[in-house]
Design a binder for these strands. Sequence first.
DNA 1: CTCTAATCGAGACGGTACGTCGCGTCTTACG
DNA 2: CGTAAGACGCGACGTACCGTCTCGATTAGAG
Lengths: 180, 180, 180, 180
Amino acid sequence: MKSKQALHSGLLSLIAEQDFSEILLDDLLRHSHVSRATFYRHYPDKEALLEHVGTTEIENLVDIALPLLSSTDTRASCLALFRYIEGHRALWSALLTGGASGAMRDIYARLFEERGPKQVDMSKRGIPLDLGTSWGVAGTFEIMAWWLKQDKSVPIEVAAGYLDRLVVRPALVSEYDVND
Amino acid sequence: MKSKQALHSGLLSLIAEQDFSEILLDDLLRHSHVSRATFYRHYPDKEALLEHVGTTEIENLVDIALPLLSSTDTRASCLALFRYIEGHRALWSALLTGGASGAMRDIYARLFEERGPKQVDMSKRGIPLDLGTSWGVAGTFEIMAWWLKQDKSVPIEVAAGYLDRLVVRPALVSEYDVND
Amino acid sequence: MKSKQALHSGLLSLIAEQDFSEILLDDLLRHSHVSRATFYRHYPDKEALLEHVGTTEIENLVDIALPLLSSTDTRASCLALFRYIEGHRALWSALLTGGASGAMRDIYARLFEERGPKQVDMSKRGIPLDLGTSWGVAGTFEIMAWWLKQDKSVPIEVAAGYLDRLVVRPALVSEYDVND
Amino acid sequence: MKSKQALHSGLLSLIAEQDFSEILLDDLLRHSHVSRATFYRHYPDKEALLEHVGTTEIENLVDIALPLLSSTDTRASCLALFRYIEGHRALWSALLTGGASGAMRDIYARLFEERGPKQVDMSKRGIPLDLGTSWGVAGTFEIMAWWLKQDKSVPIEVAAGYLDRLVVRPALVSEYDVND
DNA sequence: CTCTAATCGAGACGGTACGTCGCGTCTTACG
DNA sequence: CGTAAGACGCGACGTACCGTCTCGATTAGAG
């Protein structure tokens, strides 16, 4: 069982340096001090390991993100989300910036749907649930990835504001009063 | 020069059936009646061909999408965009649904920035241009892809409405008057 | 390690049928039931395999040929050499007759120089060692190849006589008394 | 017709630098300022050009070499041969030293047999004609190639002596009186 | 001097063989 | 049983060089 953990953290440390798709299995094995045969006893392939690692890490994120839409103070919820990201900056930079982001997006969307459908009924506001989810996830990830790329030059409150304004509010609002 | 066109349309017809990432170069070559050597005389790899094909096709899309944000009647502009998509349903289903969507997103964003930055000054509304672009592109693509997957069960006006409400309006609005 | 032997004997059986230079790597692989990758794990290219096979087989030949020049009864030594060749007729037909003969010549000459220089001092007889070696090897090979092509119509004693007369004696003799 | 000459001399100048087998057709074409199509209008392939060039050049050599065996003063004949070689050192270095030597040997043997069989009847001396030819050609070429590699440190008379002693005499002599 | 046929240059193309790369399987031995 | 070490098969990729073909330009000889 030690090997599994070695692979888990090995992948995370490698993914922080290179794009996931560029990581060779051999690199991972050498880096994790795990033999080829052992790897395949635990995972059917590289993607499965990523899936496992991603799911583990994203579950935390989903726990924080779910209340976003049901909360009364959406801005505060957004801030909470970004605080969590900030606390694991290296990890999420790797997961959102590199070639793994597509897979992460899928995992996130899947977990979101599995856990959240009852709590928030976006369809009430005229938007189909699956569209709302994929659009929201995509938007959220883009904003997070953008913020992580800014190298701390953007205050966390501002980033949270963007998320609130570009993703959360539009999902909740049914009609606009444009004032410009 | 004939080969290049054969490859272009060959890729499009293949991509309509399988995910881009699953297309083997040999399949493409057989399908396009072009030899291996000739392919590499034109493109350094499969991705470069996709890039070329994508750029060609996306340029039309960008021409239609650019006025979106500067128009007074955003809803009509959204409708125009979806009408174009509808007119080339097969093509865009292939490009947005399969494994090529990531690349398309990047191309779209690049062309969008190259051509449109002066027309729309999103930063006036408090959102950095690059964030606005990548968020807007991602959102637009998600909605389009979702609509294409619905097999015509969703009226085009409704889809355009989603785009207007989830992407265009939030980008333009600086402050909300939430009415719920 | 099994593959290496399979390749070794596979090459020998193929070289008996076609010219070495005409053997396609794929033929060899199919014939030896060895995969492409495995071949390259053992040898850098086709020539390296031939080199290895040739060296292995030629070592025996050199062991027999070396005493040729130091023996008192050169005719008997020549006979011994041809008897060995006769005992492995198929092998040497392949190695000496086909496109591999050039490589064999080089290997033979190299091994000959590596092992024999001290035993025979041809330079005493006025012929530089390297010239003597390459001339002797070339001559010996031509006679052997010729004999192998004659399909047993030439008695082995006669062939040995040619070798003695055309190669061994001239190398030993310093001056002639021509009697004709 | 100008192209043919350009190819002829182009090959000779290239063969002086690299092994024949390493010369790419494209190199030859660029070097000779002749187009691909033109080359194939004159020769079926690279080898045919070499054959043509080789035959042209070797004919001179054969004219000199033929009298070797019928002459009374073999030593003088050998000297004549080496003088000719010396007069075209660059050319013959290229033809005998590089990868073309095998082909040259074959051409030489063929021309030798075509022109010489009536003049010299080696079989009288107990050696089959074809064996005598191939053995003699191989030996002669080895000595020439060796001499050309010595960079003029070996006097021409000495080299001619080797040829006389190792090739011409053994071919003529039917019995030896070994004096050592 | 002109017309026409031979010669040529430029370069796209097909095709075959080669060598590389990375993944996934399997065997063997060790604890 | 979990693991290490490593040989192996396999499929796909990208490269290298050859030989073919088309088209347009040039040239040379015959009228």
